[in-house]
Nucleic acid binder design. Structure first.
Lengths: 409, 409
DNA sequence: CGTAGTTTGTTTATCGACGGCACAAAGCAA
DNA sequence: TTGCTTTGTGCCGTCGATAAACAAACTACG
């Protein structure tokens, strides 16, 4: 008696994760492409796709007429299941927070507008954040398989503490990841395995923005992606290597804010002068443009608005843009010499700078980097809305992208 | 009739490579440890070890009395086979070159002393290098399974051209890897597969030194290893991430020589002032110590000698050491902020600096790096002789470490 | 209009690496 | 001695994946 009928649906454990990742990032529109990308046979790719469909993660559009292709038998389109599970993503920032449900493919399914709730106690803030997310979940009626949080602070690994949550009035070293995890358990937010509470994945917001841009935005396809950007104050960096966030040995890599870009520049709290941090952030821009800075929280919006409306009319604005581009270019050149990225994506105020005068920025980088003359790194603005939020969702998806069978296989 | 006797010796394709790497780096002294490190069952580990023995790569010391262990059944020692295959490793530098045969475990089996042969034509130099290696091979009568070359120049990927072979009188952009491969074919130096010529793996000497130190020297066990060091002139860096050399998107990463460490310092050919390159190399040291620099080629030896003999007697030497340590510390702090390594290994002149006053260096780094106060990165001198040579051998071993069955399975 | 050619998808048989388990071996501790 | 602990091996099952043949769906072209 050999009734070993366990095959067929149990297939593809090893390549199941990579296959889901390919559909998730839009790099596998059909099973044929999936076959090539995974380097497996058509049989395997077909079985894997069937398994992912059975798990409710992707769809195969088999309707007659939906097939497409130039020659030979047409393909059926592979896509993320729009009715599939979601993750709870959240971002806290100086203005308050934002919670959202995010599906595979980085699609934001529902979002609760940012509520103002700056409070010195992280447990209270994260409690409200999770509560808002849980409400979204209940209203949507969808299955939740994880949760991720973006914070405006360096996050130490592997303990998940926030080292410098300057804008949140939290104490340095707050155990954000543990607190977030506890809040998720209190609100009974489930993780990938049914009926077990979600782990509270947490990371720095710019790091997560980088991850999101790499998978769904301006960083797609880059092997060594460098992301640099400002928030309201200061400058942060992130590196995505071979598709994974590089956070260094203890989560503190890419603290690029204190590269010297002007030996005679402003004094910085780090003790040096002319750091990237104080020379290319919104405050420095407003000063260079001769504008009175408004409330700290909206310095970034104020700078954006200024560049958008007065770049062509006010020469001081144009000069300020050029000054910041020169400083930023110097800093990026230093990073290019050390990291040798194949693409640079800029966020925050820096995004506006590259949008306004990308040629000047690229020229400065090429001129000041050692090997710049031969080639030159592409420097592009980021393209995703809410990239930190989408990045937080990526963090939550990761266990499933590593092993989709966690769902219930 | 089911005579499917193909099992048993064909076992362990997937874990064979990692297993060899563990024995190669000395992290698997017994099959029991191998079992734990690989995360497989004892049965698999045993079969894998037997396979590696059959391939002639490792030995299991089964002699009675050679077993050891605290409790329970004693273990037999696993070791690299001292009579196993070797690779041809070579290094070219300003003084000439050195060729060697290197066995698994980074053991130098035979070496030809450096001959002086600085010539403007890389093909001629590499021809002599390979000839010397081939002679060593013939004399030893051992099986050769690959070849690696270390050059004092940035090597561009994936084309393998030398971008700045300053000390070799070669033209920039020389196709070193191709030339090396051709010389190997001319001399009939075999690669891993029998009777097929070796590929001429080539990389920067400091990068290879870093790889060697990570696998067999001061960098063992580090996950994020930063190596910085000088040659005769200039400063180079290298990063080993999760056991693999990180060379950036085109082989040009870790060009750390042009970090600014003294805004008022010496002018550098890069256009800036006070670069790490010109502030912490042997020439800068000799100047700071008030010594007349000798012939450029031996500036490093001259500096070493000076530190060894006059550090305790001549206050100018001590001051020069401290000055360079302060400058180097500033540069390393910048790198720590960007890369967040868990260990730093110093080579060349920098090795002597950390040996003389490591405390001062660590203090400077901790003081100038953002998160230095909480922890502090271990900074240690390199420990291997001829680490670039051993690193070149690692490059040659790599295909076999990825799949030992290349040998003839 | 029909046939050839091309590419996609599925079915079936089989392979091979590894895990599980039972058992044997080799030392130490009473 | 008799346990106890740890190491090493033989046997079989299982699971992920391949290979190869077949089937399907469309284009190109005479």
């Amino acid at each position: 008696m050999t009734l070993t009928r366990t095959t067929k649906l149990e297939r593809g454990r090893g390549v199941l994760g990579p296959a889901l990742a390919l559909v998730h990032t839009g790099r596998a529109p059909t099973r044929a492409v999936l076959t090539a990308e995974l380097g497996v046979t058509r049989a395997t790719a077909g079985a894997v796709a069937a398994e992912l469909v059975a798990l409710g993660l992707i769809t195969v559009d088999s309707r007659p007429g939906a097939a497409f292709g130039a020659q030979g038998r047409p393909s059926h389109r592979l896509a993320v299941d729009p009715d599939g599970p979601v993750v709870l993503a959240a971002q806290v920032h100086a203005d308050g927070f934002r919670a959202a449900l995010v599906g595979l493919g980085g699609r934001i399914v529902a979002t609760a507008p940012g509520c103002t709730a700056v409070h010195a106690d992280p447990a209270q803030v994260l409690g409200e954040v999770v509560e808002a997310g849980a409400t979204l979940l209940r209203d949507s009626g969808r299955r939740c398989v994880g949760a991720g949080l973006a914070v405006p602070s360096a996050v130490a690994e592997p303990d998940g503490t926030a080292l410098n949550p300057l804008h949140l009035a939290w104490e340095a070293g707050a155990a954000v990841r543990d607190i977030f995890t506890r809040c998720l358990a209190d609100a009974a937010v489930p993780g990938p395995a049914p009926d077990t509470p979600a782990t509270g994945y947490t990371a720095n917001d710019l790091n997560l923005a980088a991850l999101a841009e790499h998978r769904h935005g301006a960083g797609r396809g880059a092997q060594h992606l460098l992301v640099v950007g400002t928030g309201h104050r200061g400058v942060g960096g992130a590196l995505v290597l071979d598709g994974r966030l590089h956070t260094g040995s203890s989560g503190l890599a890419l603290e690029v804010g204190h590269l010297t870009v002007d030996p005679d520049g402003r004094p910085c709290h780090c003790g040096s002068r002319g750091c990237l941090d104080v020379e290319t952030d919104p405050l420095a821009f407003l000063e260079a443009a001769g504008r009175e800075p408004g409330p700290a929280v909206s310095l970034l919006e104020q700078s954006w608005e200024l560049i958008r409306t007065e770049y062509d009319t006010d020469p001081r604005v144009r000069t300020a843009v050029e000054t910041l581009i020169d400083r930023l270019g110097l800093g990026l050149a230093g990073l290019v010499n050390i990291l040798n990225p194949d693409r640079i994506v800029l966020a925050g105020l820096h995004r506006a700078l590259v949008e306004r005068d990308g040629e000047r920025l690229r020229a400065v980088i090429a001129d000041r980097s050692l090997w710049g003359r031969s080639g030159g790194v592409p420097v592009v603005p980021c393209t995703l809305d809410h990239n930190s939020l989408v990045g937080a969702a990526e963090l939550a998806w990761q266990p499933l992208l590593d092993d989709p069978l966690l769902l219930g296989g």
